[in-house]
């Protein structure tokens, strides 16, 4: 069984937000829904000695996923391959998961009355052997997707082969499966 993960290389990301648009357009999300914001940290420091980092995000597909635990209907689920997803038919829009997620990864669909989130593009892309939209669209190849159980995968090599690797809000114990290179 694979365990899907994403590695985001902040040294490459330029904050172009193409991944945000790709996700929204191809997943046919309402215009005000964003699964994968790209934030800008900085410039910090004082001119001209400044730094700036862009931080793309998405659902972290946490191993210890508070959103799944919080969901009263069972709509929020985690597949064996680690993909956390929402079964739209079951969701009542209580937002318990929205509140439970520390990463702001869940968004309300005001048209449907449900809550949605990144599902690693499981239906149209990953299960079809294709890359998630946000990964394919990135000119900078700042997002890498793959099976982290597979020692030959790029994600495995990047996570295990670099010193500068970390995860967001690791201290909360959610065991995110999105890694950041910095």
């Amino acid at each position: 069984m694979p365990r899907y993960a994403m590695v985001i290389d902040t040294r490459k990301c330029t904050g172009c937000q193409s991944c945000t648009v790709a996700c929204r357009v191809h997943n046919k999300l309402p215009v005000d829904m964003i699964y994968n914001p790209v934030t800008t940290h900085g410039p910090v420091g004082k001119f001209p000695h400044v730094r700036m980092t862009h931080i793309p995000s998405l659902c972290m597909h946490c191993d210890v996923s508070p959103c799944v635990d919080a969901c009263p209907t069972g709509a929020s689920q985690q597949r064996e391959d680690g993909i956390v997803w929402v079964e739209a038919e079951k969701c009542v829009g209580c937002k318990a998961c929205v509140m439970a997620c520390p990463y702001g990864a869940r968004v309300s669909n005001h048209e449907e009355g449900t809550v949605q989130k990144c599902n690693f593009c499981k239906d149209d892309r990953v299960d079809q052997g294709k890359l998630p939209w946000c990964v394919q669209t990135c000119h900078q190849k700042a997002r890498v997707f793959g099976d982290i159980e597979d020692e030959n995968s790029e994600v495995f090599k990047l996570v295990n082969g670099s010193k500068n690797v970390g995860r967001l809000l690791e201290e909360l114990g959610t065991e995110p499966f999105v890694y950041y290179l910095y």
């Binding site: 193409s18 945000t20 648009v21 357009v25 394919q136 669209t137 990135c138 000119h139 190849k141």
Partner: peptide, 23 residues
Amino acid sequence: FEGDLDYPTNSGGLCCRGNVNLI
């Protein structure tokens, strides 16, 4: 439609605008 992974310059990449081609 999608970005062409075999195209030498973008290798599948499309920017914000590229993604709204059908819109």
